[in-house]
Write a protein that binds this DNA or RNA. Structure first.
Lengths: 334, 334
DNA sequence: CTGAAAGCGCTTACAG
DNA sequence: CTGAAAGCGCTTACAG
């Protein structure tokens, strides 16, 4: 199958490449008859412009890279899809780049900046840490989704997130109000200021509210996968079998924990209550249905795109938007 | 942050752009001292070549587009990640393109062909239908993963898949051998030859093996989502409450069905047995654990890359590889 | 081992 | 409304 260039089309249509380019870009200043002739030839040839050539020139228009940490996180996948949805009627091109859990987003961003002349970034599921500081040197519009970057040194970074700390406090508060005292927290290594550390603080807040102190020996770090959580839970409950409630920092972790509890003969929620986080679709259908902090995916997505385009198109300053999350009390908590 | 071009680097290093290009491409014919000087400057400037400019020239090397149907399918996500894994040490570049469930993969392929000068395709989770026939006109190496394209008219298409029909037959056979007769099948609209129709045929084979006939009124079409399957199951069991087993054409569907059964007071597997398909991670941790046909993700991925690179590099003819799937009997079937 | 020059397929002032 | 020409940032024969 021959690949036609703009030159081929011009020749077939008997016009200049300039004119073809104009038709291709829907410029108004083309004679109707000429336009139609060119369009006909393009259609016949299944012509599609070469993105490399166009990108090489590209002085116009913004190009936003959406950088997603991990392929397998259902919550981030849903969020990414929602962002892409909001992207349709925006006057900018978007590309998605999935990176490894352990990959360096600064390197990735830098590469995309050079390779593709990216003009803005959306980081999905990223955590501001040392590497992320380096990103700031990029000095271009960027938004972190799901994590609050207000208190970082990232001068060009906006963020859209829920109030992780307040929600965790609420969730843990419910556990406490129902009489649970031996509460375990399943999280992951956190750096100061990221959303996991916020959630951890929220749990401590709840204990404080109740005039109690969180027993740090019931804090567990796990990978955010079913298997990771399952294995951790088996190990943890072998030692701390008197635990009556678990606050898991993601739904995936919650499900792994519940499965483990089931396997050691503990019923959820009768013997142990489990709280999840994120509000994934699977959690709604799990048995038992997960109690969780539901992140508003659509709004997170919408605000992210909005904040970024404001920076891109109107040179707005970076904002830090906090959207409302919802506590879902379902079957996994008694 | 300034974006440096090869010209800037050349100037700073006091050499020609040709030489910088050579260093950039790790060509051997550069003086060691020169190379080091250039590399030093490149490092200082965080230089990364412009992919558009390189791609514009690109006479060398293959570019493979991996086209994935849907963002949210856990099985396809796992498969994609496995393919990407196999991709590291291949002498070709790979890009991933997620398309909508309803999107036209021919248009997508065509666009990528022109836009990016793609030289080969891997279609993940695609189904050969009318549109797919059009793809054949692309006349370039392509492989369909998870669906057997041996009996299609796709002359340039290879495929890597399991034997869907045989596996469905085995699974349904187990249901029958355990005394189930009122078996429902939850699938989706299929076209002749796709993997869903194969699975359907497999179920019929199993009934035939047992000297029985599948009761078509127990065949249900559903979206392949938890909600879709859930709603379908609620509706179906309201009418066909005597059904004692379900063969679901994906794990996701199976989980939706199980949740629905739970909600109408039927226990799985005591009242109703449920078989899934794919062998997802979630299915392993679901309560009850899913009995399923486990597709060998790693092998599917490896063979797909292998078959494609054979076509790309050695002009091999398209092969149709069938890999071994595994029946997993777990808790959801009694 | 190194460089000048042509060209990849577009877009965009500029001129008409 | 239309076209000739320059140029985007690279790569690659070709010449030395």
């Amino acid at each position: 199958m021959k690949i036609y260039t703009i030159k081929d089309i011009a020749q077939k249509a008997g016009v200049s490449v300039t004119t073809v380019s104009r038709v291709l870009n829907h410029r108004p200043d083309v004679n109707k008859a000429t336009r139609e002739k060119v369009e006909k030839v393009m259609a016949e040839c299944h012509f599609v412009g070469n993105a490399n050539a166009r990108g090489l020139k590209q002085v116009d228009g913004d190009l936003v890279a959406i950088i997603i940490r991990g392929h397998q996180n259902p919550f981030l996948n849903a969020l990414t899809e929602a962002i892409l949805q909001r992207t349709k009627d925006i006057n900018a091109a978007f590309i998605t780049e999935y990176i490894d859990e352990k990959a360096d987003e600064f390197q990735t961003a830098l590469r995309l900046l050079h390779e593709k002349r990216v003009t803005g970034f959306i980081f999905v599921g990223s955590r501001p840490d040392e590497r992320t500081q380096a990103i700031s040197s990029l000095e271009m519009p960027m938004v972190f989704t799901t994590v609050n970057a207000a208190h970082t040194q990232l001068t060009h970074a906006a963020s859209v997130s829920i109030d992780d700390r307040a929600m965790a406090r609420e969730a843990a508060g419910i556990l406490l109000s129902r009489g649970h005292r031996k509460i375990a927290v399943f999280g992951a290594s956190r750096t100061d200021g990221d959303n996991l550390s916020q959630r951890y603080k929220g749990v401590k807040d709840a204990f404080h509210d109740a005039g109690l102190t969180f027993d740090e020996s019931r804090y567990v770090e796990t990978r955010f996968s079913l298997k990771g959580a399952y294995d951790c839970a088996r190990e943890f409950f072998a030692k701390k079998g008197d635990t009556t409630a678990v606050f898991a920092m993601s739904d995936t972790v919650a499900m792994g924990v519940i499965r483990a509890l089931q396997d050691i003969g503990k019923r959820v929620p009768d013997d142990v209550s489990v709280f999840g986080f994120d509000g994934t679709e699977t959690g709604k259908y799990f048995i038992p249905r997960l109690s969780t902090v539901e992140q508003p995916v659509a709004e997170l997505a919408e605000q992210s795109v909005l904040v970024l385009t404001d920076m891109l198109e109107h040179q707005a300053s970076p904002r830090h938007v906090v959207v409302e999350a919802t506590l879902r009390l379902r079957e996994s908590v008694k």
